[in-house]
Design a protein around this nucleic acid. Structure first.
Length: 308
DNA sequence: CCACATAATACCCCAGGTAC
DNA sequence: GTACCTGGGGTATTATGTGG
C-alpha cells in the first residue's frame, strides 16, 4: 500500500486506539462527531454513504470487510469527495468509520425489510393467500426450486441461474440497493464503475430465501386489518430469525460463487431489469412515458413462475 | 392551471438490547 | 466494555387535496 498521502493534522490523536469518545449515549459516536463541514449540502448522507455502500455491494464479501480494509477504502472515497475542502485522516476506530458502519448495517437490513414487504404485498393482493397454508405452500415451492438448483449445481452453467435471477421478488429486493446507493460517485482509485454489485445481489437473493423460510416455518404471520387489504407482517422475536451475518452468512457464501461466475453481460442485464423497480430509474434511453409505472399483474406472475 | 395547505411517506439518526 | 442488529422518534420530502 502506498504511504499515507497526508500528515496528521489532529494533535489529539491518541497513539493507541482512541476507543469511544463520542458525544452520544455511552460515549458513542454520532453525526456531531464527524469532521466539521462534511455534512454540508447533505454530502455525507447523500454522496459519501451511498458511495461507501456502492463499494460494499460490489464484488466483495457481502457481510463486510474488516475495519482496516474499510478504513482504507473510505479514505480513498473521502479524499475524492472532500478533496481540497476537508482534510481528514480516517481512524479505524473513529467517528467516521463507526457512523459509516452503522449506515452499512442499515443498508444490509434494507434487503431484509424489502424482501419482507415485497412478499407481504404479493400475498395481500390475492385472496387465495388469506389461508396461511397457501402462503406456506407457495413459499415452500419457491424454496424447493432453489434446492433443486443447488443440489446439482456443479453441472449447471451460469446461464441456468438467470431464470431464477429474473424472478421479480429478487429484482425488487435488489432494487433497495439501487435506492440506497443513489447519488454515489465514481472513485478513480477504486475503479468503482467497473466493479459490479454482486455482493448486493447476493444479499438480495439471501434475503428472499430467508423470508420464504420464515413463512414455511410459520415464524412470520400476517395481521390483516381493514377489509383484508392491510397486511402487517409480524416476525417472531429472536436472533435466529434475523437477517444477520451469523445466521445467513453460510447461505450467502453458497450463493456468492455462482453469482460471481455470471458473465458480466448477464449481470449487467439483471441490474438493468431491476432498475424498473428503483425509485430513481436510470432512464436508459427508451421513453417510459406510456408503458409503465408498475408492471401489470400478469407480467409479474409470469416472471414469478417462469422458473417453477 | 397554478399556488398553497395539508397529509402521507421516506429518510436520517439515535440509542436500547443482546451476545460475547 | 465492545460489536452487531433492531426499532422507533423526529424531521425533511413528496403526494394529495383545495381554493383561486
Amino acid at each position: 500500500a502506498p504511504a499515507s498521502k497526508r500528515a496528521k493534522t489532529e494533535s489529539h490523536t491518541t497513539s493507541i486506539t482512541s476507543r469511544r469518545d463520542g458525544s452520544g449515549a455511552n460515549h458513542r459516536y454520532q453525526n456531531d462527531n464527524l469532521p466539521d463541514g462534511c455534512q454540508h449540502n447533505n454530502t455525507w448522507c447523500r454522496v459519501f454513504i451511498p458511495t461507501v455502500a456502492h463499494w460494499a455491494g460490489g464484488d466483495v464479501e457481502p457481510w463486510g470487510p474488516d475495519d482496516h480494509e474499510l478504513r482504507d477504502i473510505m479514505q480513498d472515497i473521502w479524499d475524492h469527495i472532500y478533496k481540497g475542502r476537508i482534510e481528514h485522516e480516517i481512524s479505524s476506530s473513529g467517528a467516521v468509520l463507526k457512523v459509516a458502519k452503522q449506515h452499512l448495517m442499515e443498508w444490509r437490513g434494507g434487503f431484509g425489510v424489502a424482501a419482507c414487504s415485497i412478499l407481504t404485498a404479493f400475498f395481500a393482493q390475492d385472496t387465495d393467500f388469506l389461508d396461511p397454508e397457501a402462503c406456506k405452500e407457495f413459499s415452500q415451492a419457491m424454496l424447493k426450486q432453489n434446492r433443486f438448483i443447488f443440489r446439482d449445481n456443479a453441472g449447471l452453467t451460469p446461464k441456468a441461474w438467470t431464470g431464477m435471477w429474473r424472478a421479480s421478488f429478487i429484482l425488487q429486493t435488489f432494487a433497495s440497493h439501487l435506492n440506497f446507493t443513489y447519488g454515489h460517485v465514481g472513485i478513480p482509485n477504486l475503479d468503482t464503475e467497473a466493479i459490479g454489485a454482486r455482493a448486493a445481489f447476493t444479499l438480495a437473493v439471501t434475503a428472499v430465501c430467508r423470508i420464504l423460510q420464515l413463512v414455511v416455518d410459520g415464524n412470520i404471520t400476517f395481521e390483516i386489518t381493514g377489509d383484508g387489504d392491510i397486511w402487517t407482517p409480524v416476525i417472531k422475536k429472536g436472533k435466529q430469525f434475523a437477517f444477520s451475518k451469523p445466521v445467513w452468512s453460510p447461505m450467502t457464501q453458497k450463493f456468492m460463487q455462482p453469482i460471481m461466475a455470471l458473465p458480466s453481460e448477464d449481470f449487467t442485464s439483471i441490474v438493468q431489469e431491476a432498475q424498473q423497480y428503483a425509485k430513481h430509474p436510470r432512464s436508459t434511453g427508451s421513453s417510459r412515458a406510456t408503458s409503465n409505472v408498475a408492471p401489470d399483474e400478469d407480467d409479474e406472475f409470469a416472471d414469478l413462475f417462469a422458473f417453477c
